[in-house]
């Protein structure tokens, strides 16, 4: 019904900046005033979100930065990189940096707990938990293979890790896992539903695995053309958007879950998806692909993109501001652009 297809509007751009190499990680400070961008070659740049001016740049990590995470309440962020270090940067003391040993040559993941009391790092097979002051609280026994992703369960101090063959749940209080879900496959990404009841993993073998955490009941979604590194839950924990294709596949996880249901597919992208992220409270989904397209969707309401824009290179990062009015995008050529969210 071509008459009903409305042309997507153009995304309104606020500002753009260059950091020189692939934008590996982007993060907003808790108050939405600052935006930190880590480049794949190592340096980390901090921008004023309003003006787009660079406030400070840090040397970051020798041989490359891999991820960064802002403290949920302080003007402080942590970063991990291929110098094997976990670093804590305090914007009030920009000359200093706390450098901590993450436990392996490549530190891959870093994440503050929702309360801000703990900082978790993953490097190779080592999972560690730290205080904000950089004191190591827990050095868990090595995982049986490299940790691919970590995530705190929403609103709790419970940490989860994904590696080959298992998802494990950890407490900062003890060395042994609280529980584990096993499944034979290489899991690449972990995503908690915001209500903390369901957990999804995106996998190397082109499947999505889904667990109801309370019961341990699991499901598997397959038929994707490529490995899945893109997972996003909407604020209501109803929709799980997944990548692994140039179409966005959205599962409705309400009621008894997505078993035997037909997912929604959203099409606009011309290359494999590289980023998916829902607004923290609102209904909009932002998607990015290898072809440089950024698109916004109102999932469940409309199957056409609301607004689209083309970046210079493959989309590497998409992050909503805390007030969810602005979307920050980074691409593989090192350009950062800020877009204003349209009204849904």
């Amino acid at each position: 019904m071509p008459g009903l297809v409305s042309k997507p509007q153009e995304l309104r751009s606020r500002w753009s900046a260059r950091i020189g190499d692939c934008v590996q990680s982007l993060g907003w400070s808790h108050d939405g005033r600052l935006l930190a961008a880590a480049s794949i070659s190592g340096p980390i740049h901090v921008f004023d979100a309003q003006s787009g001016l660079e406030i400070v740049s840090f040397p970051g990590h020798g041989f490359g930065a891999s991820s960064l995470s802002w403290h949920p309440r302080e003007p402080t962020f942590a970063s991990a990189g291929q110098d094997g270090k976990l670093r804590i940067w305090d914007l009030n003391r920009p000359g200093e940096c706390l450098a901590l040993e993450a436990g392996a040559a490549w530190a891959d993941r870093v994440a503050w707990s929702p309360s801000g009391a703990y900082l978790a790092s993953a490097a190779g097979r080592k999972l560690r938990v730290w205080t904000p002051a950089g004191e190591m609280l827990r050095d868990y026994p090595a995982h049986s293979s490299t940790i691919a992703d970590i995530a705190w369960r929403p609103n709790t101090d419970e940490l989860s890790s994904a590696s080959y063959g298992q998802v494990q749940f950890w407490s900062p209080e003890r060395d042994e896992p609280l529980k584990k879900f096993e499944w034979k496959g290489s899991m690449l990404r972990l995503a908690w539903s915001p209500n903390g009841q369901a957990l999804a993993t995106g996998n190397q073998d082109s499947t999505v695995h889904f667990w109801f955490v309370q019961t341990g009941k699991d499901l598997q979604m397959w038929g994707y053309p490529a490995k899945i590194r893109e997972l996003a839950w909407d604020a209501k924990s109803r929709y799980l958007a997944t990548g692994g294709s140039s179409s966005i596949v959205v599962w409705d996880c309400s009621g008894k879950g997505p078993a035997n249901t037909k997912p929604l597919t959203l099409q606009f992208h011309d290359k494999l998806l590289s980023q998916l992220t829902f607004q923290p409270r609102g209904p909009l989904l932002a998607s990015g692909c290898g072809g440089g397209i950024v698109a916004l969707w109102h999932v469940g309401r409309k199957d056409q993109a609301l607004a689209v824009e083309w970046l210079d290179d493959a989309v590497s990062q998409l992050v909503w501001s805390p007030d969810e009015k602005t979307l920050a995008a980074g691409d593989e050529s090192g350009i950062i652009r800020l877009f204003q969210a349209p009204n849904p």
């Binding site: 020189g20 190499d21 692939c22 590996q24 794949i40 070659s41 490359g64 891999s66 291929q82 490549w106 891959d108 293979s145 490299t146 080959y164 034979k184 496959g185 290489s186 190397q204 073998d205 082109s206 397959w222 590497s316 593989e332 050529s333 090192g334």
Partner: peptide, 24 residues
């Protein structure tokens, strides 16, 4: 294990090369 094809791959290479190929 992808449908009817079962094979082994080097996870470490996928990670390292994936990162390497994004660099300028």
């Amino acid at each position: 294990n992808n449908g009817c094809i079962c094979c082994t791959v080097r996870g470490d290479l996928i990670r390292i090369l994936g990162n390497l190929m994004k660099r300028r």
